[in-house]
C-alpha cells in the first residue's frame, strides 16, 4: 500500500461550503488517500458523505480549502493554467448520469473526439481512426458513431462516456458512481468492461460508489467514508471479511443477501447520518454507533494504522470483534 511513488496522493483535504445562512457544510474533513499506479481504490459511503466532492477535488474541478492533491508528486493547486491543462490529460472522469454528462447536441463521434482535439493528439485522420477504435473498444458499433446520445440506450451512453474518458490515454480514471444510474441488468456488463479496460490499459481507478456490494468485485483497496472523513481503509478482502469500524460493519449488513434467513450477527445501521452542517462532537458516527463509549463523544478518533496496510478511525478498533456485537 505504501508504494514508493503513488500516482495520486491527496493529503489532509478539507472542503467546506458556506450556506446562505452563515452556516458551513463540512463536506470533506481532513481526508488523505493515495492511489498507486495500476491500483483500484474504491471509495464507499452513503450519499452526502463527501465522496463526490472528494472526486471533484482530485479532478481539479474544485479547489480544496486546505490540503493538497498531488499528481505524480506535483500539487494541482500550484500548477499554472498550461500545466493544469496537460495534467488533466492523465486524469479522466466517468460520470454518474451518462445522459446528463453527454452534450445532447453532439454526436457520439464528436464527443469522443473532443479530448483528442483539445490535446491535438495525432493528425485529424488519425483522430478519426482513434475515435472508431475507442468506440469499438467499449462495444459500440461504427454505425453508432453518428448517433446522438438520446438515440443510444443508457448502457450505450455510459460506454460512450467511458470511451471519452479513455481518449487521452489517462493514467487514472475517477469513476463517480458509474453504474448507479443504469438498469441493474446492464450494471455488470459496464463494470466488467471497466475492469477489462483497466487491466488492458494498466489504469488506476478511483471507483466511487455507495454500494459496497458492487465494489467488492473490482477493487484492490477500499476506503469507507462517513460524514466527510475516511473511517476505515484497507485491502478489499480484509475490510469486507473483518470490518474494524462499526460503520463498515453496518454497511455490509445492509447489502441484500439471497437468503435473508442467513443474517450475519452484526449490528445493522439505524437512523440517518447527521447533517454535515452541525457535526456531532467527537466521533461523527457516535450517534448511530452500537458500541460507542464516553470517550467517543469528546474526542475524534484518528485514522490510525491497526495492522500494516489497514487504517481505522475508531477508539474501539481491535478491542471488540464486530461479529460479536449482536444487536438482534
Amino acid at each position: 500500500m505504501t508504494d514508493t511513488s503513488p500516482l495520486l496522493a491527496a493529503e489532509n483535504l478539507v472542503r467546506h461550503f458556506p450556506t446562505g445562512k452563515g452556516q458551513i457544510v463540512h463536506a470533506v474533513n481532513d481526508v488523505s488517500l493515495s492511489i498507486a499506479p495500476g491500483e483500484t481504490l474504491a471509495l464507499v459511503g452513503e450519499s452526502g458523505c463527501g465522496k463526490s466532492t472528494l472526486g471533484r477535488m482530485i479532478m481539479a474541478l474544485d479547489r480544496p480549502d486546505k490540503g493538497s492533491v498531488r499528481l505524480l508528486g506535483k500539487d494541482l493547486a500550484r500548477m499554472g493554467r498550461r500545466e493544469l491543462h496537460s495534467a488533466r490529460r492523465s486524469v479522466q472522469m466517468i460520470f454518474q448520469d451518462p445522459s446528463a454528462s453527454l452534450d445532447p447536441r453532439w454526436s457520439a463521434e464528436a464527443i469522443v473526439r473532443e479530448p483528442l482535439d483539445n490535446y491535438r493528439i495525432g493528425t485529424p485522420a488519425e483522430r478519426r481512426d482513434r475515435v472508431l477504435y475507442l468506440l469499438e473498444k467499449v462495444g459500440l458499433r461504427p454505425d453508432q458513431a453518428k448517433r446522438f446520445p438520446h438515440e443510444l440506450s443508457g448502457g450505450q451512453r455510459q460506454r460512450l462516456g467511458i470511451a471519452r474518458a479513455l481518449a487521452t490515454r489517462p493514467r487514472l480514471i475517477v469513476a463517480d458512481e458509474p453504474v448507479s444510474a443504469l438498469d441493474v441488468s446492464i450494471r455488470a456488463q459496464v463494470i466488467n468492461l471497466l475492469c477489462d479496460l483497466r487491466d488492458e490499459m494498466e489504469l488506476s481507478l478511483l471507483f466511487i460508489s455507495h454500494d459496497i456490494g458492487v465494489v467488492s468485485h473490482i477493487s484492490d483497496r477500499i476506503a469507507v467514508m462517513y460524514l466527510g472523513r475516511i473511517v476505515e481503509e484497507g485491502e478489499t478482502a480484509t475490510v469486507l471479511n473483518a470490518p474494524q469500524h462499526p460503520y463498515t460493519a453496518g454497511l455490509l449488513e445492509s447489502v441484500p443477501r439471497p437468503r435473508p434467513s442467513q443474517r450475519r450477527q452484526r449490528a445493522p445501521l439505524e437512523g440517518d447520518p447527521p447533517s454535515p452542517i452541525t457535526l456531532p462532537s467527537g466521533c461523527a458516527f457516535r450517534p448511530r454507533c452500537p458500541i460507542a463509549v464516553d470517550l467517543c463523544s469528546h474526542s475524534v478518533p484518528p485514522l490510525a494504522a491497526t495492522v500494516p496496510g489497514r487504517r481505522t478511525a475508531c477508539h474501539r478498533a481491535g478491542e471488540t470483534t464486530l461479529q460479536e456485537t449482536s444487536h438482534v
Binding site: 474541478l61 490529460r89 454518474q96 471519452r164
Partner: peptide
C-alpha cells in the same frame, strides 16, 4: 451546472470552446 459542462472541462476544453460549442448551442 450540467454535468456535460463539467465533462468538457475535464477533457481539457478551453473556456471559449465550452461557451461557443456547448453553452451557446444549448
Amino acid at each position: 451546472e450540467l454535468p456535460f459542462i463539467t465533462a468538457a472541462v475535464s477533457v481539457g476544453s478551453s473556456t471559449p470552446k465550452i461557451l461557443l460549442r456547448h453553452v451557446v448551442p444549448n
